[in-house]
């Protein structure tokens, strides 16, 4: 079938720049990380005999376990907070903003105009020992000395990340809500549902693809975030990505760092698949 092969040739030609880019920039580094994880660091050289020792260390050393658990815990809290806060905003945008929807969406993206690092530093200014929040509370006489539990710990990491990722959660939920045929809501009301019941039976199940997308979009990158914990997390706010960075850098143990990276990739992938299927089960087969 010459015609078909010509078509597929055309397709491949069209695809090839992207494909080459993806292979060189994504697949190749990933493959290298996986390869590294089975090798051993021998001072300045790499011992390329196959070994599972790195994985054994990554999964049994208490420090790595603690960091992995903390990363998961923080990013799950961040994700839950972000999605729960994003839903009402997306809902309001979709159902109650009649004109100027585009303007609202535009305003939601305004925080992206400044660098992420600047935004993290701003949180330091707000939450710091002599920061905006503490001085305001002290001036109002609500507290006598500055609060210390708001910066350089896990709480600060959650707060900063939840703020940074909010637009990424709002947009997919907003799109899912926009796609809901409004006559379905009228039909539910017509068949006896009050607003709450209707929300639970129609709006939420049909918005589920957006909620799942928002959850994954926030969860996956936040597990691996290392800038935020480093800047506002203090010592008990450090996460697994900081340890991976240390292994590749100061500790000069790239194979162990690679094994940690692959391990957290597997953990996150497993959780993501679980969330995807849970969402699908609740939302039914939405077409």
């Amino acid at each position: 079938m010459p015609r078909l092969s010509q078509e597929s040739r055309q397709g491949l030609t069209l695809l090839s720049p992207t494909l080459a880019y993806a292979l060189v920039m994504l697949a190749a580094p990933l493959a290298m990380v996986v390869m590294f994880s089975f090798w051993t660091q021998d001072y300045l050289d790499l011992d390329k005999t196959f070994t599972l020792a790195n994985y054994r260390e990554a999964w049994t050393q208490p420090i790595f376990q603690v960091l992995m658990w903390r990363s998961l815990k923080i990013s799950l809290i961040v994700t839950t907070t972000t999605v729960i806060l994003a839903f009402p905003i997306a809902y309001y945008l979709s159902f109650h903003v009649r004109s100027r929807k585009a303007l609202w969406l535009f305003l939601i993206t305004v925080p992206f105009w400044t660098s992420y690092l600047l935004r993290v530093f701003l949180w330091k200014v707000i939450l710091g020992y002599n920061g905006v929040l503490n001085s305001a509370l002290m001036n109002l006489g609500i507290i006598d000395e500055p609060l210390t539990f708001i910066l350089y710990n896990a709480n600060a990491v959650v707060l900063t990340l939840a703020h940074a990722w909010a637009p990424f959660a709002i947009l997919p939920i907003f799109i899912a809500l926009e796609k809901i045929d409004r006559s379905l809501l009228e039909a539910a009301e017509d068949l006896g549902d009050g607003p709450l019941r209707r929300f639970w039976r129609i709006t939420l199940p049909l918005a589920m693809p957006g909620v799942v997308a928002a959850t994954l979009i926030v969860l996956i990158p936040t597990v691996g975030d290392y800038i935020t914990p480093k800047l506002v997390g203090g010592t008990d706010g450090l996460m697994v990505a900081n340890m991976i960075q240390i292994q590749f850098g100061k500790a000069n143990n790239a194979p162990l760092g690679a094994a940690l990276a692959v391990s957290s990739m597997i953990v996150v992938a497993t959780i993501s698949i679980g969330i995807y299927f849970a969402g699908k089960k609740f939302g039914g087969k939405v077409k």
Binding site: D190, I202, P205, L206
Partner: peptide
């Protein structure tokens, strides 16, 4: 005490 048949039928897609 009324029920409607909608122009678009409004069949719930997830049920």
């Amino acid at each position: 005490p009324t029920n409607m048949v909608f122009q678009s039928y409004a069949i719930f897609p997830h049920l």
